[in-house]
Amino acid sequence: MKSQCERCNAALPPDSAAALICSYECTFCVDCVQGPLGGVCPNCGGQLQPRPTRVAKSATA
């Protein structure tokens, strides 16, 4: 799971709802996707969708 936007380097931690990915897991922030990228991955031309989030594991798990 990539931790930053591939276009603007914005931080996208595992629990971020602002991360979008394509089927190849290219990762971009919502601002880039809704703005200059227009919802399309610049690498493969695929549609960008919300990335599933992950919660951090607890130290006692």
Rank of each mutant, 00 (worst) to 15 (best):
D15P: 01
N9Q: 14
A18P: 00
A61R: 09
G38R: 14
I21A: 08
Y24P: 04
C26E: 12
C44W: 03
T60G: 04
Y24R: 04
V33C: 06
R54S: 04
R7M: 06
A17M: 10
S23M: 02
C41L: 14
K57N: 11
P52W: 02
S16N: 05
L12W: 06
A56W: 10
V30S: 10
P13C: 06
L48V: 03
C32D: 11
K2N: 08
P42C: 09
V40K: 15
P36H: 15
V33K: 03
R7F: 12
L37Q: 07
E6M: 12
T27M: 05
P50V: 01
R7W: 02
S58F: 03
C8A: 12
Q49S: 09
C41S: 13
N9W: 15
K2H: 01
C44S: 08
N43A: 07
S3F: 11
V33H: 01
D31R: 00
E6Y: 05
P52H: 07
C41Q: 09
T27S: 11
P50S: 08
V30C: 09
Y24E: 13
C26M: 10
K2V: 00
R7A: 15
G46D: 11
P52N: 11
I21K: 14
K57V: 13
A59M: 05
A11G: 14
G45A: 08
R54T: 04
A19F: 02
V30N: 01
E25Q: 12
S23F: 01
G46F: 07
Q49W: 08
L20F: 15
N43D: 10
C29G: 00
S16V: 01
V30G: 00
V30R: 01
R7H: 07
C8L: 02
N9P: 13
P42L: 04
L37I: 00
P13R: 03
C41T: 09
E25P: 02
G46N: 15
P14E: 07
Q49E: 06
A19L: 00
K2G: 00
C32T: 06
C29S: 02
